[in-house]
Design a protein around this nucleic acid. Sequence first.
DNA 1: ACACGGATACTA
DNA 2: AGTATCCGTGTC
Length: 196
Amino acid sequence: MNTVPRELFTLDPIRSAQELLGCTLVWGKAAGKIVETEAYAEFGDEASHAFLRTGVREFIRFRPPGSIYVYLNYGVHWLLNFLVKQGPWNGFVLIRALEPVHGIDLMEQRRGLHDPKQLCSGPGKLTQALGITGESNGADFFNLPDVCLLARTGRIEVAIDRRIGITKSPDLPWRFVAAESKFLSAPVRKTRPRAN
DNA sequence: ACACGGATACTA
DNA sequence: AGTATCCGTGTC
């Protein structure tokens, strides 16, 4: 099984987000295939934390591509992002959903439920299922023990949507999903960007 | 439909 | 210090 090299995170966030689809994220004893991602850009993207937070801009400047950015959202959920650095197009990829493939009993235990479709079908759900917390924030993924990213096997059909749950820059079509997946956080919407 | 609840940045 | 905001989930 091939593992993904750091170069996957030296692309712009939009390309990196799509390349990550179909890869399998192994985190300790649990693993899941990435079926949903979103791209966030350092510049020109008001929904990116880098737009307002000086600490996040420093994070981008000083950490290597492939670094893990984990933050607490709504005071409740840890959200997992990868730092991508391509020069003018730095940013983050948010991992939004996984198809569970390994350690499912452990995921069920951590999540407190048994429906495989609900174990990792959301950015906060998958961190809970994998046991990811802010403890990992700032770590270099490629220097972490017991984690890796397995390369995609075969082709994957990518569907594109607007990002979910944001209020700033809402019309950017930077949500990417494995079109055939039954493990998404939400179906792909058919709405066109609002006029004006 | 709504409660849950913490980090960050801004106002002062 | 106080307030507004935030890339969500589970349960009502």
